[in-house]
């Protein structure tokens, strides 16, 4: 079986987890990024889903494994288990709903709890097409972003296809720099920081 439908070689594989409140548009963002389409009535995400997308940064072939998690509060215990070994996190909120912005704090706390310390974070304010309904100012968002030392704060619209690809490329670039500068040159087709072996799994016996 070939889950990714593309076996093209790549230089780096990064795992990116997409988090944020229910309905902020995470699945739409992933869909837009992955296939360039806009599906208005995407079903809510139950558990997690993921997709792969390749891109090129600085002449390197990068494969991004994007994990789309459920935003519903109650499913957090499940989704948190997928944070492990993420190289990057995209935390999204809905520019038209202040509560989703206020919850960025909760999500960032989860990140510090469940992700590796050096994970790269990106803050996204989605639905920027709805300018009339905007509920938070860009300054506020940027401030919160820098408070959590995100690599960038970007406003996006999955609907209008604004900054979607740019956001992922931005994160990929940062990850690439980080990992090539730390001199952890990976063999092609080596999963970067992925899978179960990055952290010692607690053994249940002996």
């Amino acid at each position: 079986m070939n889950p990714n439908n593309d076996t093209e070689p790549y230089d780096y594989l990064f795992k990116i987890v997409l988090i944020g409140d229910a309905g902020v548009g995470k699945t739409c963002i992933v869909q837009r990024f992955k296939s360039g389409v806009w599906v208005e009535s995407q079903a809510s995400t139950i558990g997690v889903d993921f997709c792969m997308k390749s891109c090129e940064v600085n002449g390197k072939k990068i494969k991004l494994q994007v994990w789309d998690t459920a935003g519903q509060e109650r499913f957090r215990t499940i989704t948190q288990s997928y944070y492990r070994s993420a190289n990057g996190v995209v935390c999204a909120f809905d520019l038209t709903r202040q509560s989703t912005f206020l919850n960025v704090e909760k999500w960032m706390n989860d990140v510090s709890k469940f992700c590796e310390e050096n994970v790269s974070k990106l803050l996204i304010g989605n639905k920027c097409d709805l300018t009339e309904e905007r509920a938070v100012s860009r300054e506020e968002c940027a401030k919160v972003g820098s408070y959590y030392s995100v690599v960038d704060y970007i406003e996006t619209s999955a609907k209008d296809n604004t900054n979607i690809e740019a956001s992922f490329i931005k994160l990929a670039t940062v990850l690439l720099e980080k990992h090539s500068s730390s001199n952890l040159q990976q063999e092609p087709n080596t999963v970067f920081g992925l899978g179960s072996r990055t952290k010692p799994v607690k053994s249940t016996c002996c």
Binding site: M1, P3, V48, D49, F50, Q65, G195, S196
Partner: peptide, 19 residues
């Protein structure tokens, strides 16, 4: 048979089951 394939890892299991 698919899930136990050695090439079907953690992510592939999820992907396959979702699919």
């Amino acid at each position: 048979p698919i899930l136990m394939d050695k090439d079907c890892g953690f992510t592939d299991i999820l992907k396959h089951v979702n699919g």
